[in-house]
Design a protein around this nucleic acid. Structure first.
Lengths: 216, 216
DNA sequence: TACAACATACCGACTGGTTGGTATGTTGTA
DNA sequence: TACAACATACCAACCAGTCGGTATGTTGTA
């Protein structure tokens, strides 16, 4: 039992260390600017280990996108805001949570998927696909809450949960770009404030302000 | 007169050809993935010409951001929507114009500044600075109209012209990322629709719906 | 239980093509 | 003649990927 756990733990070590290193380095420098040697150095493994686990640098980039999906979706799933009964409260709680975690170094709160998607569009289909899958999946989970909110509170024509979920991601991704330009988290806080105001007006002001008390 | 125009025209030829090539290639492949030889090939010049005009590849990347600012600001300044008397109409006309030009190949309507800013954050200060300057300047011009609109129609506390201008850019930049993932312009149209609805509600619904007829 | 056959994880020196950059012409013009 | 605007030839560093080899399990079988 002990040993049967030891081997898989060790075999996953080099691999997951490389994935973690990829996420950290790519968020800081971009994918192309990150070398295999750098990745191995940060992960504390050798090139042999790298190419044992990944067929190519591109394959690592794509696998890191899936790793990113797994770790970040775990982070959001465990967060407190999911406990709200009201679906709109859950969505607004998500925005608050996003606002909270946007602190410190820019590279530490920006999105691996967005960064590599923008850079690797046109040079690697594998990475582009995996990165978009990450963002689309995240949007889809938001869409569940938003669809419930729309069913409950109503919304203008053409506004769907998925459309709002994707828009949420667009706003965040764009804010990350501005944050990189400015070197601070301020643009993220501003963008979230605007988005929050939009959604509040969408469900609150335009439609008949049902249950206003529960909406902040 | 003819000759005095010929020399600068020719001297600017290699340089501006390289700048155009940089914008085209970087939008498609990203900065790091684009080689100096590729740039020279597309521009139809040799490496000697390249390093005669630019001290380094990074310098070309930064100069291309300024070139991008110049060409794109000319495009928007000449557009018809600027003729509207109402500042809000000018802003909404800008959104419509953005919506119109988002067609065809994804790389043809995405933003050089946003792409290189995201990628070169952390690897080149010169490019990051020039790229952010491009986006910030564009936001500032939008902010002029938005400030006038706010003065005229009023707005909730904390909403300034610059804040809305930057948010507009954030939404567009984020939409470009989604467009790259999806390989189509649809996310851009969706994002603009949401942003348009937000601004309309901001000036229209929340505040006393002055001059409603002129607002679409 | 013992042992052969095989599999998995990892090491690190090496390579061959690529890349940013340089050094040295050449040409046209003032 | 002087100088700007190129072209040509070349280089040293770098980098993704390879390859032979080792160490540590795992499995099948007698």
């Amino acid at each position: 039992m002990n040993t049967s756990r030891t081997l898989p733990a060790k075999t996953e070590n080099a691999r997951s260390k490389l994935l973690d290193a990829a996420i950290a380095l790519v968020r800081q420098q971009g994918f192309s600017a990150t070398t295999v040697d750098q990745l191995c150095g940060m992960a504390g493994v050798t090139k042999g280990a790298f190419f044992h686990h990944f067929a190519s640098k591109d394959a690592l980039g794509a696998a890191a996108a899936e790793h990113w999906t797994a770790t970040s979706s775990a982070l959001f799933m465990e967060a407190d805001y999911n406990r709200h009964e009201d679906p709109l409260d859950r969505y607004l709680g998500y925005l608050d949570f996003r606002d909270e975690i946007a602190t410190g170094e820019v590279a530490d709160f920006t999105c691996y998927a967005g960064t590599s998607l923008q850079e690797c569009y046109g040079s690697s289909d594998a990475i582009r696909g995996a990165a978009y899958q990450s963002i689309a999946g995240h949007s889809a989970r938001l869409a569940e809450d938003l669809d419930q909110a729309i069913a409950h509170y109503g919304a203008p024509e053409g506004v769907t949960g998925l459309s709002l979920g994707l828009h949420t991601q667009a706003v965040l991704q764009g804010a990350f770009i501005l944050a990189k330009g400015q070197g601070s988290a301020a643009p993220v806080h501003d963008a979230i404030a605007h988005l929050r105001r939009y959604v509040l007006m969408l469900f609150n002001c335009e439609n008949r302000m049902k249950e206003e008390g529960s909406l902040q």
